[in-house]
């Protein structure tokens, strides 16, 4: 597989991830506004409604759906890095397999810890 082919796949992957995330966030957004549109809202005080990835289950439906869309968006560049890893492995470019593994582990550790 050539560099250009890998780059083509990566390009499509990024586009698809952003599109899917936007669609889910949009659906959640309509649901959220239909559900709570007339309730007052303020973000002037720092009282987070959600902390961490797993806490998505504790959110009310519309906000949970939005959060899932946001998680898809955050996952998009991470999946992109994983694809690059596969690409470099196919090219037997072990130095770049190593570099990509470092980036991937930094990304995953930031999400998991």
């Amino acid at each position: 597989m050539t560099d250009e082919r890998i780059e083509g796949i990566i390009g499509n992957l990024l586009r698809f991830g952003v599109f899917l995330a936007a669609l889910v966030v949009l659906a959640g957004g309509f649901w959220y506004v239909a559900h709570a549109g007339w309730q007052p809202i303020s973000y002037s005080h720092f009282h987070p409604s959600i902390r961490g990835v797993r806490a998505v289950a504790s959110l009310p439906g519309p906000l949970a759906l939005i959060q899932i869309g946001l998680l898809i968006l955050i996952a998009t560049p991470i999946v992109r890095v994983a694809f690059s890893l596969a690409g470099f492995a196919l090219e037997r470019d072990w130095m770049y397999v190593g570099f990509t593994l470092i980036v991937l582990s930094v990304l995953i550790s930031s999400l998991v810890t």
Binding site: G28, I41, Y43, P48, Q67, I74, T76, R80, S110
Partner: peptide
């Protein structure tokens, strides 16, 4: 995008990402 995804994990854990605000 990759750089921001690295920060996003930490931001999620600290509660900086509010779905109701991030959506619009």
């Amino acid at each position: 995008g990759v750089t921001a995804a690295a920060s996003a994990g930490i931001y999620l854990h600290r509660g900086y990402i509010e779905p109701g605000l991030a959506m619009p």
